[in-house]
Structures are given as structure tokens and as C-alpha cells.
């Protein structure tokens, strides 16, 4: 029986706190990516408390280059860039997360029902999805925000309504291929009802794909939100928001480069961390 002993050991280690063990035994690169994700989320949550200065008040000389006192310099009215980037991180990161979570939930639900049911339900839901996909999301968002009045909350609402079709298609495709696998037939024969098959035997299989797609989407969303802010539809000008700070600061690029570049670097880091963490989460799911 010595042959099965190694398997036995690995089997025995699969008790309750399985997920945490999985993270602990993950390769260093995955741990690093997940650690960075936790760090940036923490920074975003604590941003305003950590900021040394008021992000909306002029606290120093205008267009001051990075120094010990102002690590990222000051902008053209003398506001501290470091404090503004920290606070901007909060609104941008949390806004992006909110929209993506909303999109994944709405799109995932529609894709799940369409993919698992098939037939006319599938056709109707997917044609509706196609209609939303055919409309350019940014222009539609502008129209919606213009109609209900500009504010960050309204913008998020408008973008969430438009962000789901992509996930609906993705999840539906994944569910359709899963639904053709014998394990669904096996579950049906075991007496598992429609809802149970959907929830336990189909949905978990589509989660990794959706997570990876969502993590790649963070950058797109930050850019879209920045564009809307630039048009005056997102967070209103003095409010710190990474996209609009980059966009409005662009005119100072040749004179005071740090004004647009610092928030741009923050966006870049945000997307990079989201992407690598998304890949790591997928790898961990594959291994479990």
C-alpha cells in the first residue's frame, strides 16, 4: 500500500482551510501579485486618511517639482500631488471595482440563464445583448449622464448599465460548452434539479474566465471613466480622480511633466496589478 501513501498525504492536507493553504503554497509570483492587489486596495480605502495634505486646497507654491516636502510635486494651483493621487486612487479604483462587479453580476446572470436554457430564451437574451453591444458604450453613457445630471455616482450607474453585455456573451459561451459535458447529464440522472445544476454544476466553471476578463477590463474602465471626467461628466473638476487629473494636466506636460505623469503612473500600476492578480487568481482556481 506504499504506492498510495503519497496520494494519501496530499489528500489528507485537503481539509477545511484549503483555500488558504493553496495561497500559501502558491508560487512567489502569484503571492506577490495578490499581495500588491491587497496593498493597493488598502491604499485606496485609507487614501484620504493617509494623505498629508488636503487634496482640494492649495498648500504650496504652484507647479513645484517633486521634493522631500511634496514627494510628487504640486499642481498648477499649488495642491499637493501626492495627496491628490492617493485620494484619486480611491475614487478611481473603487469606481472601477463597482462597475465591474455590477457588470459581472448582471452579465453573468443573463449569460448563465441564456447558456443553460438554450432555445428561444437564449436567442431573445442574446439579441438584446447584441443591441447593447451595437451601441457605442461611451456615447450612450454620455447621453445617460447628460439626461440625469453629471456626478460620479450617475456616471457609474450609466457605465454599469452598459458594461454587462460583454460578460453576458463570455459567460454564455463558457456555459454552453460546459452544458455539453457529460457531467451535466450525470447530474441530471442523479436527480439534481434545474436550479441545482445551474448553481452547482455550471456556474463555478464560468467563474475563472469571468474573473480573468474582469481583471483585464480594469484598464479599459479607468480610461473610459477618465474620458468621461475629461468631458465634465464624471467627478467634477477639483475632485481628485486619476483619469481627469491626467487629462487636464496634459497641457502642462512640457513645462511641469509631473502633473500629468504622476496620476498616469498610478493608472498604469492599477491596471498592471489588476491584470497580474487576475492571472494569479485564475491559476489558483485551476489548481484547486
Amino acid at each position: 500500500m506504499a504506492a498510495i501513501e503519497p496520494v494519501l498525504r496530499s489528500g489528507a492536507s485537503l481539509s477545511r482551510p484549503r483555500r488558504w493553504r493553496l495561497v500559501r503554497h502558491a508560487p512567489l509570483s502569484d503571492k506577490l501579485a495578490l499581495g500588491m492587489l491587497a496593498l493597493i486596495t488598502l491604499l485606496a480605502l485609507l487614501g484620504p486618511t493617509l494623505a498629508p495634505h488636503d487634496p482640494l486646497a492649495a498648500v504650496g507654491p504652484p507647479s513645484h517639482p517633486p521634493s522631500w516636502q511634496y514627494p510628487l510635486g504640486t499642481d498648477e494651483v499649488g495642491r499637493d500631488m501626492f495627496s491628490r493621487v492617493l485620494c484619486g486612487l480611491q475614487s478611481t479604483w473603487l469606481a472601477a471595482l463597482a462597475v465591474i462587479v455590477g457588470g459581472v453580476l448582471i452579465g453573468g446572470a443573463i449569460g448563465l440563464v441564456a447558456g443553460a436554457t438554450g432555445g428561444w430564451v437564449d436567442t431573445v437574451l442574446m439579441r438584446i445583448t447584441d443591441v447593447f453591444l451595437a451601441l457605442p458604450a461611451s456615447i450612450l453613457a454620455i447621453a445617460v449622464v447628460a439626461a440625469i445630471g453629471p456626478s460620479l455616482f450617475h456616471t457609474l450607474l450609466a457605465v454599469s448599465i452598459l458594461w454587462w453585455p460583454y460578460y453576458a456573451r463570455l459567460v454564455r459561451a463558457e456555459i454552453r460548452s460546459l452544458a455539453a459535458r457529460p457531467h451535466i447529464e450525470a447530474a441530471r440522472l442523479a436527480g439534481v434539479g434545474w436550479g441545482g445544476r445551474l448553481w452547482r454544476h455550471l456556474l463555478p466553471g464560468a467563474v475563472p474566465t469571468a474573473v480573468v476578463a474582469a481583471s483585464l477590463d480594469v484598464a479599459n474602465l479607468v480610461v473610459l471613466l477618465a474620458g468621461l471626467s475629461f468631458l465634465g461628466l464624471g467627478a467634477q473638476p477639483p475632485a481628485p480622480e486619476l483619469g481627469s487629473m491626467t487629462a487636464t494636466g496634459l497641457s502642462s506636460l512640457l513645462t511641469s511633466w509631473w502633473i500629468p505623469v504622476m496620476p498616469a503612473i498610478a493608472i498604469f500600476l492599477l491596471s498592471l496589478i489588476a491584470n497580474t492578480a487576475g492571472d494569479s487568481i485564475r491559476d489558483l482556481m485551476d489548481r484547486s
Binding site: R181, P182, H183, E185, A186, A187, L189, A190, G191, V192, G193, G196, R200, H201, P204, G205, S288
Partner: peptide, 30 residues
Amino acid sequence: SPQMVFQDAGSSLTPWLTSRELVEERLRSC
């Protein structure tokens, strides 16, 4: 209702569920 054992056991078991969950599900439906 008859029960069935499939050719490819690997694909007839739901990959993210443990053996216990799969067998208990059958008991629950009974």
C-alpha cells in the same frame, strides 16, 4: 429511474465538487 456510469469518468464528475458533495447530492434527491 435508472442510474448510469459513463465512459469517461473524468468528465462525468463535476470537476470542482468533491466526491462527498457529488454522492450526497444523489442522496438528497432521493
